[in-house]
Design a protein around this nucleic acid. Structure first.
Lengths: 214, 214
DNA sequence: TAGATTGTTAATCGATTAACAATC
DNA sequence: TAGATTGTTAATCGATTAACAATC
């Protein structure tokens, strides 16, 4: 419902590419070439799968040789949009929000530049967290529109999540990274990615349960 | 490679069940019955999919009526193992680790009880974070064995992740919740769930890219 | 009863894996 | 050259969706 039905990169591919990227960046000698087989071995994946994933980025390899490591790194980063800055608004300056702000990796490695923080708690408004001023939530729409910010990060209590998402979308934000355990209702064309930790934990405890009761 | 090939609950199902649970818990009148159609509508899913997901938990519904809301909540929680406490060790007392500790939801809602924190930084050792004493990393194996802790949470810098995972596994930990952007090598039978935020972000920026260049 | 809903079986769809020709 | 690797097409596998009988 939420996706435009253009031929998109399969989601599993989008989930694997960052793994490859992390591995490639860890290679000390980037002058060497790298093959899909090598990458596949690292993760226990099928080499053909790795080849298809990589092909999505548009890079062309050389038979018998593989890919130039530096090229491949650059190509994956470009494909994911991680080598240009995406400005983002963060809603929520609680524990999780603060951790996201302080977790500098986002900006340096993934290009997510949180430029402003919004919070309902009046006590926090006006203070600074990790160098960003904390602003009232009702400023989101107007500021997003004026700054052309494309991404909104939602890390607030569940009750407020939908209304904050609405404000963001009204301000022209088209991608929402949602850390809140609720199903956001958004118009077609708006992308929601749920970074729900609970979901991830469910997979772990669910498998654990399968294992223990098998 | 990592999974035992017993007939397991499909991972997509494990990812959706927490959504249903969140929705069900948000229903004010839990005396009423609930149908798959209602749940499906909430999320824009196929009702049959919801029915199959729910069937995995073992609950049996009533034709024409649906499921008892309270029963269904309990059944999903039980299936996910969220209504009994799972003790866990946390490795890493940085921004992310601290946020995980303070994020009380884990204990109350998902049964993940972080009982000890381990950190290499000597300056932090001996201090307390959210009521837990910070211990040196080399105590993990011994303590895990003595306390029979089943789950390890890894939120440390990538370089140290593998060695910490090894220590955990040596101590008898069988499930690892990995927040670190590396591929952990673990023996068969050990469950690793990667809660990688970067992966989630990749899906968002990747789709955004697809959308903007379409 | 009528009709909504469950549970289940069959059809469809998409992702993974296998097979293989081209190539450096 | 020989053989490893790419790129691509075909086969397999599993998850999603559709169809439908049973039922309350």
């Amino acid at each position: 419902m939420n996706d435009l039905k253009i031929r998109c990169t399969p989601e599993p591919t989008l989930r694997r590419l960052p793994l490859y990227l992390g591995f490639l960046k860890g290679i000390s000698d980037r002058g060497r070439n790298i093959s899909c087989t090598q990458i596949a071995n690292e993760f226990g994946f099928d080499p053909t799968q790795v080849r298809k994933d990589i092909a999505q980025t548009g890079i062309v390899g050389t038979a018998r040789i593989g890919y130039d490591t530096k090229d491949l790194i650059l190509q994956i980063e470009t494909f994911l949009g991680w080598n240009k800055k995406h400005e983002a608004f963060l809603a929520g300056a609680g524990n999780l929000g603060t951790a996201l702000l302080k977790y500098n990796l986002f900006k340096d490695e993934y290009g997510l530049d949180i430029v402003a923080v919004f919070e309902n708690d009046k006590a926090k408004q006006g203070t600074h967290i990790a160098g960003r001023k904390v602003l009232p939530v009702d400023k989101i729409t107007d500021l997003a529109r004026r700054m052309h910010v494309p991404i909104g990060v939602i890390a607030i209590p569940p009750e407020a999540a939908q209304s904050v998402a609405d404000r963001m979308i009204e301000g022209g934000i088209i991608g929402i990274w949602n850390f809140c355990p609720v199903a956001l209702k958004v118009p077609e064309g708006i992308i929601v990615e749920n970074a729900r930790l609970s979901t991830s934990l469910a997979v772990l405890t669910g498998k654990l349960h399968n294992l223990l009761n098998a």
